[in-house]
């Protein structure tokens, strides 16, 4: 509780002083480097490898934005931010862009003075239990002990869900995903709850994944979205449309492999606009003609990024589900480039 008050106070300070950096775009250009806030380590989303090179689903968004703005996906400084410091880190100007699996919620959008640039991953909270517990639905978890990470929206969702269903639970507070796994494996809790993507990755790393099930219910909406500071709308537009370009690229079949060819030969006017062949959309957001082309070249379109980091071919093995294109029954729907 005290912590919340402390962060609240910091956030208020952020509001009053926040508009310090008004023009993020020129600042980033002058610096020649994009400061991107990422998770210090989340399987599939952001993690440094043995040589310190960052990779992951969120990291690829940082690269795309850097490629669009600076022309080089490598010009990113990754600033690892913890769950507690992420929003203050953004509003204090420590980072230009927060791509750190953060849920887009009302109070964060308004009270914390963030601007979310669009959802890059639709997640939802779920539960994992041992198979021999015999539980097949979250409705049967009345009275269960549940491992829950503090300071996250999942903690609040859990309370809401159990209250709404008139059930009781015993929380076992944990600090990190690794600790949660350990507690769960040691039998300190009956169920482990976090975002479904996290549960899938955790289960994949168990010695005996077949003995654990992820319950079918998804109890919350967790639209994970990259965020920027309130008040610099042009910078927000750049991030939003970079993300849109990645999503639209998948929809129109632009991949990192065929992009050069399409730029020359595509007859589709939307593709031509995205790739800067006709119309100069880039000028409207202070960038050059080929900004979106470079963003897509950085690590491919949305589908390629998904497949490379968390998709079914990776050990994490997430299905596209909600994160499929709207034409495929998913929720991804890029606004038109016009």
């Amino acid at each position: 509780m005290k912590r919340t008050v402390f962060w609240g106070a910091l956030a208020v300070t952020a509001m009053t002083a926040g508009a310090a950096a008004a023009d993020t775009l020129s600042e980033v250009k002058n610096r020649g480097e994009l400061n991107c806030g990422v998770n210090p380590g989340l399987v599939g989303f952001a993690a440094p490898d043995a040589n310190g090179n960052w990779a992951g689903f969120d990291v690829d968004l940082c690269k795309a934005v850097a490629a669009a703005v600076l022309g080089d996906p490598g010009k990113v400084k990754y600033v690892p931010l913890t769950g507690q410091t992420r929003f203050t880190g953004l509003s204090s100007g420590e980072v230009d862009l927060l791509a750190r699996n953060s849920t887009w919620s009302f109070s964060r959008d308004t009270d914390l003075k963030l601007d979310f640039a669009g959802v890059n991953y639709y997640d939802g909270q779920g539960f994992m239990v041992r198979k021999d517990l015999g539980v097949t639905s979250t409705k049967e978890l009345d009275g269960a002990t549940i491992c829950i990470q503090t300071g996250t929206t999942t903690e609040l969702n859990l309370a809401d869900y159990f209250k709404a269903n008139g059930m009781e639970y015993q929380p076992v507070n944990i600090d990190s995903n690794a600790e949660g796994e350990q507690q769960y494996m040691a039998g300190a809790c009956d169920a482990y709850t976090t975002d479904i993507s996290g549960l899938a990755a955790t289960r994949a790393a168990f010695a005996d994944p077949e003995n654990h099930v992820i319950l079918p219910e998804v109890i919350s909406k967790e639209p994970l979205a990259p965020a920027v500071r309130h008040g610099d709308n042009n910078w927000g537009d750049i991030v939003r449309w970079t993300l849109n370009a990645l999503i639209a690229a998948e929809e129109y079949g632009i991949t990192s492999k065929n992009i050069e060819e399409l730029a020359k030969s595509s007859e589709n006017p939307e593709v031509q606009r995205i790739l800067g062949v006709t119309d100069d959309l880039g000028a409207m957001i202070g960038l050059d003609k080929e900004w979106a082309k470079r963003a897509i070249q950085a690590s491919g379109n949305y589908g390629e990024i998904f497949a490379a980091n968390v998709g079914e071919q990776t050990p994490i093995g997430l299905a596209r589900g909600l994160n499929a294109q709207w034409t495929q029954g998913g929720l991804l729907y890029a606004q038109p480039f016009r």
Binding site: P40, G41, G44, P48, P80, T82, T85, T202, A205, T314
Partner: peptide
Amino acid sequence: VAFVGLYEPLKNISDAVRANIEWKGIY
């Protein structure tokens, strides 16, 4: 200093190592 996102050996380096799928689950 783990709490300010610096990679000290006890927590953040370990978390970063665990965030690679090869070593996820090591504690």
